[in-house]
Amino acid sequence: MEQSVVNISQAAQDYLVKLLEKEESGCGVRIFVAEPGTPNAETCIAYCREGEQHQGDLPFHYDGFTVWYDERSIPFLENAEVDFREDRMGGQITVRAPNSRVPQVGPDAPIEDRINYVLYSEINPNLAAHGGIVSLVEVVDDNVAVLLFGGGCQGCAAVDITLKQGVESTLLARVPDLTGIKDATDHSITTNAYY
């Protein structure tokens, strides 16, 4: 018997079966890590009705329900555990994913993970001196990274220099298959701007 990617305890399985019985037939759960490999990583379990699976999601069938794993999240779900703890309020599902924030930057890693690794290990520590932070929104066609600046960088008068000379040059040097950078930040908001 396979053991699935995430170890879902029997108590958690029983609880999920009960929950899903109330939903429409064929409803399962989807497990994914939002912003994997970054300090903001969050492991999520969501209802997944028939047809709501994402392209590339990988199924695993338990007795009574199906778990759909986000393919990209699988390395970050290594050693993850889902449990159910009863308490006076009824109980709650607990998720432990010790590797969700650990960067996975092997040669086969998706470009998003390699960009995030450079952002969080090199670029953000430097921007932090000005109270700034930059995060990856998405990678669009032709490997162009769309970035979002926050903190002291949002609305900063020097953001173009930061973007061109700091962020873009570092990212293009570290991630060779990256072709360009776009800034999706609304810089009209200057509340926290450094300059």
């Binding site: 396979e2 053991q3 699935s4 990617v5 990988l58 199924p59 695993f60 794993y69 699988i74």
Partner: peptide
């Protein structure tokens, strides 16, 4: 291969 899921893609 995803042996934990019981298949390869």
């Amino acid at each position: 291969a995803y042996p934990k899921l019981g298949y390869a893609v």
